[in-house]
Design a protein around this nucleic acid. Sequence first.
DNA 1: GATCTTAATGAAACCGATTACATTTTAGAG
DNA 2: CTCTAAAATGTAATCGGTTTCATTAAGATC
Lengths: 325, 325
Amino acid sequence: MSRVINNSSIVKPKTAQKVLEIIEKYGYVPSTTARNLSKGSSMNIGFIVPDIDNPFFSKILHGISDRAAFYGYNVFMFGSDENIEREHSILKSLSYDMLKGLLIIPVSNEDKNTASYLRTFESKGIPVVLIDRDINNYHFNGVFSEDEQGSYDAVSLLIDEGFKNIGIISGPTTSKPGSNRLKGYKRALKDAGIPIKDDYIVSGDFKLDKSYDAAKKLLEMPDPPKAIFTSNNLSTLGLLQYINDKHLKIGRDIALIGFDDIDYLNLLNINITVVDRPIYNMGYQAMELLNNSFDKESEDDIIKRILVKSWIIKRGSEKMLIGEK
Amino acid sequence: MSRVINNSSIVKPKTAQKVLEIIEKYGYVPSTTARNLSKGSSMNIGFIVPDIDNPFFSKILHGISDRAAFYGYNVFMFGSDENIEREHSILKSLSYDMLKGLLIIPVSNEDKNTASYLRTFESKGIPVVLIDRDINNYHFNGVFSEDEQGSYDAVSLLIDEGFKNIGIISGPTTSKPGSNRLKGYKRALKDAGIPIKDDYIVSGDFKLDKSYDAAKKLLEMPDPPKAIFTSNNLSTLGLLQYINDKHLKIGRDIALIGFDDIDYLNLLNINITVVDRPIYNMGYQAMELLNNSFDKESEDDIIKRILVKSWIIKRGSEKMLIGEK
DNA sequence: GATCTTAATGAAACCGATTACATTTTAGAG
DNA sequence: CTCTAAAATGTAATCGGTTTCATTAAGATC
C-alpha cells in the first residue's frame, strides 16, 4: 500500500508491519513508471553534452553524476557531437513528462531554435541549467566561468613576460566561451598598447584537427607569433602536436599558454602554463542549482547564474623563451 | 488517438487527417510515462561505468550513445567509481520497469551480489550485456576483448626483442581483464622458458596513483626489470610519470609496452608500443547486441558473447634499448 | 456507557496512454 | 436493394501507482 511505502500518511505501526511482511513475502517491487505517471513527475535529469570524448566534459559529467546520485536522480546522457542539428533532434525527442530537469552545454550561443526548445521546457515546468556555454540574450540559469577575464590574465601574463607578438587559436565565435576568450585576448593587447594583428587570430573549433591546422597557419606565416594563447584544452593539444611534428621546442621556439589544464601533460613533464578552473565543480554546482530550482514555484522569476573563478597555473614554459619576443 | 500516432491499426486517411489537425491545434504531446506504463516497457538503457574520467570508458560510452541514438533509446549513465558498494546501490536503485536493457562494466569478476542483481534483471525480462569485464562462472552476454592473447603478444614481442627481465604492472586480479592480462604475461614468459619472478609482478588498480607506486616499486628494486608491461592506459601513464619524475628515458633506461593506446601521447611524439583494440566499437557492439536481445523471447536460452580482436601497434620504443636486457 | 472527535483504514477516482472488444460504417456479392 | 463480411471507429478496461473521499475504529469527555 502506497501509504506504508511513502511513510507519509498516518499508519498504525501494527498494520505497517503487516503490510511490510506481505511486501517481503511476495517480493513486491513498486513500479516507478506508474508512480511517475500518477505523480506527474520523475527523478530523471537530462544532460546534453557536445563531445563525450573530451575530458573536460567527462569531468563535468562526473560532477553532475555524483551530485545527482546524492539526490537519487538518474542522469540521461546525450551527445550532440557539436552538431546543432543533432542537438535539435535530441531536444525534440525528449518528452516533457520524462524529465525533472535539463542540463545542457549548448553547441551555439546564438541558436534561436535551441533557445526556444529550452524555453518550452521551462514553460512546462522543467528547469533548465546551462553549463559553461551561455546563449546570447536569453538569460537562462547556468554555471559559467570567467572566460574573458581568464584569457585576459593569460595574455597579460605573456605581455608581462615581454612578448609582443602573440597569436591566438580561438574557438568558434558562435560559442560564448570562444568569443569571450577572444575578447579577453584583444582587451589584454589593447590595454598594453599592442596593436591587434588580424593574421595572429586564427580560429579553431575547439577540436584537435582544426587547431593543428590553425597552429600550422600561425607558425608558418612570414612573421610568426612568438607566443600563442590557445582557447581550450584540445586547441592546446593541436598546437602541441604541430610543435612536436616540427621538432620545435616550447620555451625556446615558441611560448604557450592554454585555457584549461590537461592532466596528463603534467605527469609527462610537459609543463605548460594554463588558465585553470574548477571543472568537476561546475558540473556539481549545475546539478545543485538545478535541484534548487525544483518545487520552488515562487522563485520562478529569479534567474540563477553562477560564475566560477578561473586562475592561472604558472608552470614557467613561457619564461624560458629568450631573444626577440 | 493512439491508433493514429502509432499508425499501426487501420485508420482511414480522412480521419487520420482530422485527428492530426486537432493534435496540431491543441499542441498535444503524448506522455511517454503513460505509454511506458501501459506498454509495460520503455526506451531507456542503463549503463553502469566504473570510472567516468577514464578516456577508455568515454570512448565506450560514445559508441553506446551513438548506437542508442540510432535506435531511439535513451541512455542512463551511472558511475560506480570502481566501488563495489556503490555498484550495488546503483543496481538496487534501478527499478525494473524503467529499463529496457542494461549495460554494465562491472567492478569485479567474482562478486556474487552484482551477478545475482544482474540475473534478477534478466529474469524480469531486462537483457544484460557486460562490456570489457566478464564475471566468473556466470556466462552473461557481453562484449569482451582478447585480454590474455593481447598481453601474451605484447610480452612475447619484448622477449623477441631480447628482453629477459620483464616486469608487469598488473590490474586488480578481481577484474577479469586484470587477471587475464597477467595470465598472458605469465604464459609468454613460460613459453619462452623464462622463469617467472614474483618480484616483477606488482599489482596496480588500473588507476594512476597506484600504478605510479607500482612503477616505483619495480624500478627501485636491486635488480629492476629492463622492460615493463602495463596492464591498462592509466597504468602506462603512472609508469610514464615515474619515468619522467626520475628523468629516465624510454628506450634507453627502460622499455615499455602498454595495454590500450593513449591518444594524446602520440601527438606529443611519445611513441610507445601498445596493445590496441576497437574501443568505440566495443560500446557500439554492446548496444547492438543488447538491441538484438529485445523481443526475441525464443532465443532466451542463447548466450551471446562477442570477442573483439586486439593488435599491437609497434612504435618502436622498445627497439632502442641497448646493452643488457 | 453514550456521544463526539480524531485516527486509521478501505474504496474509488485519477494520471494518460494502449488495446481488447463492441459497435457502426463501408464495400462487395447476390 | 438487401444481406453479409470486412473495415473503421467508438467504448471501456487496463497498466500500477497516488490521492481524495467515505467509512470504520479508537480514544477522549462527560
